[in-house]
């Protein structure tokens, strides 16, 4: 049996396992519904650093370092770090990687980076090219805001379709082991553009990409939405996930109660984020805390995690281009030995 299924899906026959994970979030996220699940909550968003960019690096450093520790390993056991972030030239991740002195692959998938790095990492591990791979990503509200939008002190109103970039980072360690939740499949997404030009409505721009990847996944693996305990999209937000449900229903797939979105889960309604969270850190932090914890507890047995990204830059927006989206999906299956 080949490892490729259908058109876009890879099956990991050796089943790489998640042996370590760590999540870290900012103060605002730490007041949200998942405050008891995160490993670490920042007391202030500067994290004792001189700039927000440095704070983002420090968060990533802590996430990667502690996930390696949680996996019971030493930094020298790591064969590869795969990761990315939202800043220009992915400076946060690559600058963090220099402290670890291990091989590094920098990737950019906007907010889909966590799923993309998991897919890449799992491929290396499954193929037995490498033993231990760390997949990490993170974002910071204040760095993303100044790069993509306006200065923080500017007294402007955020439009009602906008989302709040999550301050947070997450890191996962993959290995071929005897214990740990397994990554069994990955569906690599296509860049999908339905002509949305409003950079303040990212959910609508990314929903078609999520639809494209989810449908390909169901076709390739001959599964249906009901086969999963949880289908989790990255950061479509409230509006984006409503659009996705409509689009899926239009194509004959009904996303029911087992569907949720990290963006709309991240904050309480009274936190005034409008459509919810966004950014790499959003789904990375929730995946590495809440989702893996619920897999441990056996609440979920298999999860389809589809992180979505909007591949825009300030330049493309100013030139009036539409926003292409991308979505990568990975399937995580519960190891029944965990938590027993």
């Amino acid at each position: 049996m080949g490892k490729k299924m259908g058109d876009q899906t890879i099956a990991f026959l050796n089943k790489p396992r998640i042996v370590g994970n760590y999540s870290i979030v900012g103060k605002k996220e730490g007041c949200g519904p998942f405050k008891d699940y995160f490993h670490y909550i920042l007391k202030d968003d500067l994290f004792g650093e001189s700039s927000f960019e440095h704070a983002e690096r420090k968060m990533l450093e802590q996430a990667i370092g502690c996930s390696i520790k949680n996996a019971g390993m030493n930094i020298n056991d790591v064969d590869l770090i795969v990761g990315g972030d939202l800043l220009n030239q992915i400076i946060s991740t690559s600058f963090t990687a220099r402290y670890f002195d291990r091989p590094f692959l920098g990737i950019y998938g906007a907010c889909s980076t966590m799923a993309e790095s998991l897919a890449i990492g799992a491929t290396f591990v499954d193929g037995k090219y490498l033993n231990n791979v760390v997949c990490a990503t993170g974002t910071h509200f204040s760095t993303a805001e100044r790069q993509y939008r306006f200065p923080l002190e500017l007294g402007n109103q955020r439009p009602p379709t906008s989302q709040w970039t999550v301050t947070g980072a997450g890191s996962t360690v993959l290995r071929l082991a005897d214990e740990g939740h397994m990554i069994t499949k990955a569906t690599l997404g296509k860049v999908t553009d339905y002509g949305i030009k409003d950079a303040n409505n990212m959910g609508a721009a990314m929903a078609p990409a999520a639809m494209s990847t989810l449908i390909s996944h169901f076709k390739d693996t001959k599964t249906s939405p009901d086969d999963y305990d949880l289908i989790l999209t990255g950061d479509l937000g409230k509006l984006g996930s409503e659009i996705l449900m409509d689009l899926m229903e239009h194509n004959g797939y009904k996303l029911g109660k087992n569907y949720n979105d990290c963006g709309q889960m991240m904050y309480n309604n009274n936190q005034k984020t409008f459509q919810g969270g966004s950014g790499c850190g959003c789904s990375a932090a929730i995946f590495n805390s809440f989702i893996l914890k619920k897999l441990d507890e056996g609440v979920y047995k298999n999860v389809l995690y589809a992180a979505t990204g909007a591949l825009l830059s300030t330049l493309s927006t100013q030139q009036g281009d539409s926003i292409p989206g991308i979505c990568h999906a990975v399937v995580i299956e519960r190891d029944s030995k965990v938590g027993e």
């Binding site: 009602p160 002509g195 949305i196 609508a204 078609p208």
Partner: peptide
């Protein structure tokens, strides 16, 4: 492609919550 995008934009516009 173009007509699909137009339709989608119209649809999204109708979905945006009325504040």
């Amino acid at each position: 492609h173009f007509s699909r995008n137009e339709q989608y934009n119209v649809y999204v516009e109708s979905k945006i919550p009325k504040t």
